[in-house]
Nucleic acid binder design. Structure first.
Length: 289
DNA sequence: TGCCCCCTGCAG
DNA sequence: CTGCAGGGGGCA
């Protein structure tokens, strides 16, 4: 599942390839996935690619923005003169476009007195949960996702803010970590592994964590997110970066998806339970209540 | 605060 | 062949 490290990896790729280019055409094959008028972002230069939690925002010179959330199975893959040698693995979809390609942007370079160099940005999404919305840049914060989005780790979330957030609720700590309105960017993979690293049971009421545990969890969150970024994200599912290449964080999973396997620390069999409707993995020995 | 729903692949 | 997983918005 794309979380902060995965979406940030995509953002860096898009920033590299898209800034300065102009979208000349938008082919929307699945109307449901794009809200707003594509004409609003055609023929205007791309200024920047930003990220807020797990969402991306592309700003255009004419004052419009394209907000994108790829949810679980979305992919944003750039194909152009700079990337022509990179071949997509069949595991992640193979030749583009294909039946799960729902939106295709055609881009032009703005290099004067050169032949126009065309490139494409493909949006693939097997489960179609993702979305794109075109709005005026000043209205981004009015979109439901951005309205009331919480602070994010590695950016503006401080230990004292984290402590305050946890103290306010008795909800299970893992449910709190996954709530984007409280803290932005953490998803199921990194939440499970951060709780394991800090030896905290996912069911613990958030407000019951001691100062020491809160600090350990805060540090563990930074550790797993940084590691995720370092190795290009986790490609357990459909995730690939903007070039269509998989990440390697799945090789570092501690408990996520490891149910039935021994804990790397103590050998106890990792359990899978359900918390807040989400699969939750833990070592009942290392993370006792 | 909690449940349902969007959709598809895949586990059972 | 059935039923479930899963991010997060919307509604009860």
């Amino acid at each position: 599942m794309p979380e902060l490290p995965e979406v940030e990896t995509i953002r860096m790729g898009l920033q590299k390839y898209l800034v300065g280019k102009v979208i000349s055409d938008a082919e929307v094959r699945l109307e449901r996935q794009l809200e707003g008028n594509p004409n609003d972002i055609l023929g205007t230069q791309i200024l920047s690619v930003g990220r807020f939690g797990k969402a991306l925002v592309i700003d255009f010179a004419n004052g419009f923005s394209l907000a994108i959330h790829i949810k679980m199975t979305g992919q944003l893959i750039y194909r152009g003169p700079e990337t022509k040698d990179i071949i997509l693995s069949p595991k992640v979809g193979g030749e583009l476009p294909h039946k799960f390609t729902h939106i295709i942007f055609t881009l032009e370079s703005l290099i004067l007195n050169h032949e126009s160099k065309q490139s494409h940005l493909y949006y693939n999404d097997i489960r179609q949960f993702g979305w794109m919305k075109i709005v005026r840049t000043e209205d981004i914060n009015l979109l439901p996702f951005f309205k009331g989005i919480g602070p994010e780790p590695l950016k503006d979330l401080t230990l004292s803010m984290f402590d305050k957030i946890l103290s306010k609720t008795k909800a299970p700590i893992k449910v709190v970590l996954l709530d984007q309105k409280r803290i932005a960017g953490i998803g199921n993979i990194y939440a499970n592994d951060a709780l394991f690293l800090s030896k905290i049971n996912p069911k613990r009421p958030a407000s019951s964590l001691t100062k020491e545990e809160t600090k350990q969890l805060f540090d563990a969150i930074e550790t797993v997110l940084k590691k995720g970024l370092e190795v290009g994200g986790a490609s357990e599912w459909q995730y690939v970066n903007a070039e269509g290449t998989a990440g390697n964080y799945q090789d570092f999973f501690q408990v996520y998806g490891k149910d039935g396997k021994p804990c790397s620390v103590c050998g106890t069999i990792i359990q899978r339970i359900n918390l807040g409707g989400r699969g939750t993995f833990l070592c009942s020995s290392c993370q006792s209540l």
